[in-house]
């Protein structure tokens, strides 16, 4: 609790730089979260599959095990 009070005290006492930084970040962060969760599920699922979409069926047949 003291740590939070200390950080807030510092925040208030030290001018505008942190405030600008924090506001910019929070706005960007909120926008990204909203936007991200409005993406279509089908698109998200397709992108998540990208690493698994191997297009090289002819090689590496012996490498199923580490």
């Amino acid at each position: 609790m003291k740590l939070i009070q200390y950080a807030l005290g510092e925040f208030a006492a030290n001018g505008i730089y942190q405030a600008i930084a924090l506001i910019i970040f929070m706005l960007v962060f909120i926008a990204i979260v909203i936007h991200t969760y409005s993406l279509k599920k089908s698109f998200v699922d397709q992108m998540a599959q990208s690493p698994l979409d191997e297009s090289n069926p002819n090689v590496n047949s012996k490498t199923d095990q580490p």
């Binding site: 970040f25 960007v28 962060f29 990204i32 690493p51 580490p66």
Partner: peptide, 29 residues
Amino acid sequence: MYYYLPKQANRPIYSYRMGIIHFWALVFI
């Protein structure tokens, strides 16, 4: 990690959406 972990586990990344937020928040902060 985002490439080799799904490859070795043979399953997609847990949350692609979280990946997007992870990326932008990390790069910005």
